[in-house]
Simulated assay, not measured.
Amino acid sequence: MKQKFHYDTVSEAVTQLKAQGFTLDLNLKSNQFTAGDDVFHAEDFEIVDLYRYEGASDPADEAIVYALASPAGIKGILVSGYGLYTDEAAVQTLKQLHYKYQQSQL
């Protein structure tokens, strides 16, 4: 799926994605997504869309908003910073999801 929209801010992207049914607020730890007490295997999800934001003057403002979905119909949003303060296991998991996403774009 090609990116159809570009949102000016992270909060605008999150608001619009929630309106599209991406209601879970996902967090990534190693190779699992969590939403509250629920735990999901990351490999069960695909990136539906993503939006990258870069801070104009502060690298700490860099973030990626992921719209994620599973074949079981679970849809959520992951907001991830990138750069210096990332968990290496989480980085590897996101790389695998990015690879699947890129392959679906061909």
Rank of each mutant, 00 (worst) to 15 (best):
G55F: 03
L26K: 04
K18H: 11
I47R: 00
S104Y: 07
L28V: 00
G73I: 06
T86Y: 09
R52K: 13
K29L: 12
Q96A: 15
A19Y: 04
Y99P: 07
T93Y: 05
S57D: 14
G73M: 04
A35Y: 04
G36V: 01
E12M: 09
A90W: 05
N31H: 11
Y82G: 04
I64M: 08
T86H: 12
N31I: 06
L97T: 05
A60F: 11
L97W: 03
P59C: 11
D87G: 00
V65D: 06
T34M: 05
Q105Y: 08
T86N: 13
G76F: 03
S30N: 09
K100E: 08
A42R: 06
D61C: 08
G76E: 05
I74G: 02
A67K: 03
Q103M: 13
T9S: 11
L28Y: 02
A42P: 03
A72R: 08
Q102H: 14
Y51W: 15
M1C: 14
R52E: 14
A89S: 08
R52S: 14
L68N: 04
L26V: 01
L17Q: 05
T34E: 07
D49S: 14
G55D: 04
Y82F: 15
E54M: 09
T9I: 01
A63E: 12
V91L: 15
A60Y: 13
K2N: 12
F22Q: 02
Y7W: 09
Q103A: 10
Y99Q: 10
S80T: 01
V14R: 05
Q105A: 14
Y53C: 03
V79S: 00
D87P: 01
I74W: 00
Q105M: 15
Y7M: 06
L50S: 11
Y101F: 14
F45P: 02
Y66V: 02
S104I: 10
N31A: 09
I64K: 07
T15F: 15
K2D: 09
Q3C: 11
Y66Q: 02
D58T: 06
L106G: 14
T23K: 10
D58Y: 02
G55A: 04
I47E: 02
R52N: 11
A90V: 02
A60E: 15
K29F: 12
G76H: 03
Y53S: 00
T93E: 00
I77E: 09
L94V: 02
Q102D: 15
G83A: 05
L106W: 09
Y51N: 07
G21S: 06
L24D: 07
Q20W: 09
V14C: 11
A60L: 15
S57R: 10
E62H: 15
Y85M: 13
I77Y: 04
